[in-house]
Computed example of a mutant assay.
Amino acid sequence: MNNQPTALDAHLARAAAIHFKLTPLRQLADGHFGHDPDAIHWGHVGDLGRANQALDDLLAIFDGKAE
């Protein structure tokens, strides 16, 4: 009996893990990533710039349509 996961099994598990992480990411974004809106500084802007670039990189990997 073969108990080895197939590539499809692994793909589906990793896709599910990504979906699981998107919900809290959206919640964090809706809440200013835990920062007081009145205390936002350029360091926060830089952090979001790096996160935005990482998301663009991911999109480029999968659909080639990153901005």
Rank of each mutant, 00 (worst) to 15 (best):
L8N: 03
T6V: 06
G34K: 08
A17Y: 05
T23R: 08
G31S: 13
R14M: 07
A29I: 13
D30F: 04
L12Y: 01
D9V: 08
G34E: 09
H32T: 04
H19L: 13
G34R: 03
G34A: 01
H19K: 11
D9G: 03
L12V: 04
A13Y: 02
A10P: 04
A13N: 14
F33Y: 04
R26E: 03
P5Y: 12
L8R: 11
F33C: 11
H32S: 11
D9S: 13
T23Y: 08
T23E: 03
L12S: 00
G31V: 05
P5S: 11
A13V: 13
L8F: 13
H32E: 07
A15K: 11
I18T: 13
L12M: 08
G34T: 04
Q4K: 01
H32Y: 12
F33K: 09
T23P: 07
T23H: 05
N3W: 14
A29Y: 00
L28C: 04
H35N: 15
Q4C: 10
H19T: 08
I18A: 06
F20V: 07
H11L: 08
L28I: 00
L8K: 03
A7W: 05
H19W: 09
N2H: 10
D30N: 11
A16W: 10
L28A: 14
K21M: 11
Q4V: 15
Q27H: 12
L22N: 12
L28G: 04
K21Q: 03
R14V: 10
A16K: 05
A17D: 08
N2L: 15
Q4H: 14
L25C: 07
T23A: 05
I18Y: 10
A7I: 05
F33L: 01
R26D: 07
D36I: 06
A13K: 04
L12T: 00
F33D: 02
L8G: 06
H19I: 02
R26L: 09
G34W: 11
K21T: 00
A17M: 08
H32P: 09
A17C: 06
N2S: 15
L28Q: 15
D36Y: 06
P24I: 03
L12Q: 04
P5K: 09
R14Y: 09
A16R: 15
L28M: 15
A10I: 12
A7C: 01
D36R: 03
P24D: 05
F20H: 01
A29G: 06
A29N: 10
A13L: 07
D30L: 05
I18W: 11
A10E: 09
R26W: 07
A7E: 11
F33N: 09
F20P: 02
H35D: 15
L8W: 05
F20M: 07
N2P: 13
A29D: 12
F33R: 10
D9Y: 00
N2V: 10
A17G: 02
Q27Y: 12
D9C: 09
R26P: 07
D36G: 02
A7Y: 10
P5G: 02
T23K: 03
P24W: 07
Q27V: 09
H11N: 09
F20S: 04
H35Y: 07
Q4L: 14
L25F: 09
L25W: 12
L25S: 10
T6G: 14
R14F: 11
I18L: 13
H11Y: 14
I18S: 07
H19M: 00
A7Q: 02
A10M: 13
R14P: 06
R26K: 01
L28Y: 03
